[in-house]
Simulated scan of single mutants.
Amino acid sequence: MIVAGAAVQGTGHLAAGQGCQDAFKAVGPGALKAVGPGAATVLAVADGAGGRERSALGAHIAVDTACRVLAEDVPVSGDSPETWTRWTAAAGARVVAEYLRTVTALLETTVPAHPADAPHAPHADVGALAATLAAAVVRFPWVAFVSVGDCFGTVLTRETDGAGAGDGPGRRAPAGADTGRDSGTEQCHLVLPPPGSGSPGPVFLSSPGAALRVRSFVVWEPELSGVVLATDGCAALTLDHPSVRGLPPEAGPLPSARFFCGLAATLRANGGDAEPLRALLSGPGAARTGDDLTVLCALVDGE
Score class of each variant (00 low, 15 high):
residue 2 I to C: 02
residue 3 V to Q: 00
residue 9 Q to V: 13
residue 13 H to N: 09
residue 13 H to M: 05
residue 17 G to H: 14
residue 26 A to F: 11
residue 30 G to T: 12
residue 30 G to P: 04
residue 31 A to K: 14
residue 33 K to D: 15
residue 33 K to V: 14
residue 33 K to W: 13
residue 34 A to G: 11
residue 34 A to T: 14
residue 35 V to G: 11
residue 37 P to K: 09
residue 38 G to E: 10
residue 40 A to M: 01
residue 49 A to F: 03
residue 50 G to A: 14
residue 50 G to T: 15
residue 50 G to N: 13
residue 58 G to R: 03
residue 61 I to S: 08
residue 64 D to T: 11
residue 65 T to A: 13
residue 65 T to H: 09
residue 67 C to S: 06
residue 69 V to A: 14
residue 71 A to P: 02
residue 72 E to L: 13
residue 74 V to T: 01
residue 77 S to V: 09
residue 78 G to Q: 15
residue 79 D to M: 02
residue 89 A to H: 07
residue 97 A to R: 13
residue 99 Y to N: 00
residue 101 R to N: 08
residue 103 V to G: 07
residue 105 A to Y: 09
residue 107 L to Y: 03
residue 109 T to E: 13
residue 111 V to I: 11
residue 112 P to C: 01
residue 113 A to K: 11
residue 120 H to P: 00
residue 121 A to T: 14
residue 123 H to K: 09
residue 124 A to Y: 10
residue 124 A to P: 07
residue 126 V to P: 00
residue 127 G to P: 01
residue 128 A to I: 03
residue 130 A to Y: 00
residue 130 A to M: 01
residue 131 A to I: 07
residue 133 L to K: 13
residue 137 V to C: 06
residue 137 V to Q: 05
residue 143 V to K: 04
residue 144 A to C: 05
residue 147 S to A: 13
residue 149 G to D: 11
residue 152 F to K: 05
residue 154 T to Q: 07
residue 165 A to Q: 11
residue 166 G to L: 07
residue 166 G to W: 06
residue 167 D to C: 13
residue 168 G to I: 12
residue 168 G to R: 08
residue 169 P to I: 06
residue 172 R to M: 08
residue 174 P to W: 04
residue 177 A to R: 11
residue 177 A to F: 12
residue 180 G to N: 01
residue 181 R to C: 14
residue 181 R to V: 13
residue 181 R to F: 15
residue 181 R to W: 13
residue 185 T to H: 09
residue 185 T to Q: 15
residue 188 C to D: 12
residue 192 L to Q: 14
residue 195 P to G: 12
residue 195 P to K: 10
residue 197 S to V: 04
residue 198 G to C: 02
residue 200 P to G: 08
residue 212 L to H: 15
residue 218 V to Q: 05
residue 221 E to D: 12
residue 222 P to D: 08
residue 225 S to L: 00
residue 225 S to Y: 00
residue 226 G to S: 08
residue 227 V to S: 03
residue 228 V to P: 02
residue 228 V to L: 09
residue 230 A to M: 15
residue 230 A to V: 10
residue 234 C to S: 05
residue 237 L to I: 04
residue 240 D to W: 05
residue 241 H to S: 09
residue 241 H to N: 06
residue 247 L to Q: 15
residue 247 L to M: 13
residue 247 L to G: 10
residue 252 G to N: 14
residue 257 A to T: 10
residue 258 R to G: 04
residue 259 F to P: 02
residue 262 G to W: 04
residue 262 G to C: 06
residue 265 A to R: 15
residue 267 L to K: 10
residue 270 N to K: 12
residue 274 A to D: 12
residue 275 E to A: 06
residue 277 L to Q: 04
residue 281 L to V: 05
residue 283 G to T: 00
residue 284 P to N: 02
residue 286 A to Y: 03
residue 287 A to G: 02
residue 288 R to C: 15
residue 295 V to P: 10
residue 298 A to S: 04
residue 303 E to F: 10
